[in-house]
Design a protein around this nucleic acid. Structure first.
Lengths: 338, 338
DNA sequence: AACGGTTCCGGGAACGGTTCCGGCAACGGT
DNA sequence: ACCGTTGCCGGAACCGTTCCCGGAACCGTT
């Protein structure tokens, strides 16, 4: 890589002081228009690019954000990232990618990496499992701006952006109820996820509203995967073969479940109606096309980033929780489907 | 954020010069064991973290890599990223995320961002469309270490890691041929992608090997999406209703195509066999489960990053092209399926 | 006792910017 | 003619680290 020009080279070539060049590239006043033009000219000629590193060193602002993510196979989180990245970029910030995919225990080391690089803030785009989170709490106490999506840190007050999962679970279940179903199975995600608890809560409320007693045999845990949904469905049919409807807490599991259902000869939606959650692209093209709760995933990422930037601007901003709405998308896997 | 300790604070507290502290944190010799211990002690007490920024400024090494990506909805590229991130991390590097998802024209500005931040190298995890690529060529000439996946820059010699798409297309088609099919349709991706050209070339060779004449009416372009596969299939059935087999150049289009086929009453694989490409998770759980060419996507990311790091270590390393093999996965959408 | 070689450590400059502060010329008002 | 502003610019210090070099103390030889 050829040696790059510095601010001093530009200054020398333009016959001014580095100081004045600095004023020009930062659009500060107190430079004669003519001088300004000349300096820009020299900058272009020399192909000068200010060093973001040197700048950050003195200004204490890196315009870097950390992005903690855990599962790139999960459509939800990848879409959150897309939204987040777009919003960051719009504001001159960018993300450092930290994927704890393979090993959640790497997280503390990642956070160390991020603080060493003096990121201005950190966005958590990973689920809240009940792993050790003292290192996160410690960040909060250090005053590092922090926003999370779908991750609630017990005991700490922090800014969270998420989908209203209680409402979403309610709507999904209510839809099945309103189609006349009374025996409604549910495949959840892992028990320690907040979203699972919330969607399950929505399910329960919808049943309660309809005067249907909650039956624990109608509920099986899955792991969000196709495979998991497939197996959970087999389990569910064993436990309560009489169900006429299924609420799967994500689309992958719904699709896996539908395969299991077909294998038992059940027709969808005639014999059993299915509602998913997410609205992944495959949902519209699986067989049969899946009725599901669409989540505004990119929006979650955008809003989260916006709040993070606010927090960076003014660290005294009050922490808050923002919930976005999921919306029911009608397709043919369910009673009143197209 | 509370004021953080600097190397001078540590030095003062330990009664040594900053220089000596520097030697300790960098594990250099020429420090008495006792002094070393004392300094480590102080470092822990003060919670001192060396500033990566200041370090990078003098050492000219940022340990940052740029990651140019275009399509987070594409399973292939997200998996490449996962592999790349893991490999980078293993070597003490990390990625700055640059998604040109919304607007490919942003790319030059992204590259400017990356060079301003003095990244040590850049990984392109985006397809090679025939957009303007002068800015990329300019990077090459500046001597910035560069590795691409699935992206070939015409006229430039650079390190590329990709899947052997010619061979993959050949195998997919050959499999259909060996099941006895003679009229084999193909849904490709966008015409300007290198991988599309290569897979199509493989298709053509397989036909040729079997003595089947190539019929342009058997080929339709898609856009990689479910929707695109669905529409392409309708088009294909119009053009050549007599086909008994389909090679879709990715799984999404294959799944979309299967929906279109079912809508015409065709059974899979009895009436028409289908082979996809990628082996996305949905492939095993769609209906019917999809026979497809599995790509070692994470491996592509890992290898690409490894080569990039090599290039950074020694910029004189010869540029090369690495092709990984795709492998046929048998499922039930095809003749000899399970 | 003088000498060369280690071992351990520190002073000062540098990396590439920004900030603080102050200087100088021109200008308008009295 | 004098004085306070205003516009424009530069000198020096600093951000937090590392690198180059030199120097003191100690060791064993001759």
């Amino acid at each position: 890589m050829q040696k790059t020009a510095t601010i001093r080279d530009v200054a020398a070539a333009a016959g001014v002081s580095p100081q004045t060049v600095s004023r020009v590239i930062n659009n500060r006043p107190d430079v004669a228009p003519q001088t300004r033009r000349r300096i820009w000219q020299v900058i272009r000629e020399l192909g000068y690019q200010p060093s973001a590193l040197a700048r950050a060193l003195v200004s204490k602002r890196t315009y870097a954000l950390g992005l903690i993510t855990a599962d790139f196979s999960d459509y939800f989180f990848t879409q959150v990232i897309v939204g987040a990245e777009a919003e960051a970029r719009r504001n001159g910030y960018f993300f450092i990618l930290c994927s704890t995919e393979r090993n959640p225990a790497d997280e503390p080391e990642y956070l160390r990496l991020l603080t060493e690089r003096q990121v201005d803030g950190i966005l958590f785009a990973r689920p809240s499992t009940e792993q050790d989170s003292r290192h996160v709490a410690s960040l909060v106490h250090q005053g590092v701006p922090l926003v999370t999506t779908a991750y609630h840190l017990p005991g700490e007050q922090l800014t969270v952006v998420d989908v209203d999962n209680v409402e979403g679970g309610f709507q999904a279940t209510h839809h099945l109820v309103s189609c006349g179903h009374r025996r409604i199975g549910m495949i959840t995600g892992p028990a320690d996820w907040k979203s699972v608890k919330d969607r399950s809560e929505g399910y329960r409320r919808a049943l309660e509203t309809a005067g249907i007693p909650f039956d624990p045999r109608c509920v099986v845990h899955g792991d969000w995967s196709y495979e998991g949904g497939y197996r959970a469905m087999q389990q569910l049919l064993l436990q309560s073969p009489e169900i006429t409807a299924l609420f799967a807490q994500n689309d992958c599991m719904a699709i896996g479940a539908m395969l299991a259902l077909r294998e038992t000869g059940r027709r969808i939606p005639e014999d059993i109606a299915v509602v998913g959650f997410d609205d992944i692209p495959a949902a519209a093209y699986c067989y049969p096309p899946l009725t599901t709760m669409r989540q505004p995933m990119q929006e979650v990422g955008r809003v989260a980033t916006r709040l993070l930037l606010e927090l960076i601007q003014d660290p005294s901003t009050e922490r808050k929780e923002v919930l976005l709405k999921a919306e029911l998308v009608h397709r043919s896997s369910c009673c009143s489907g197209a």
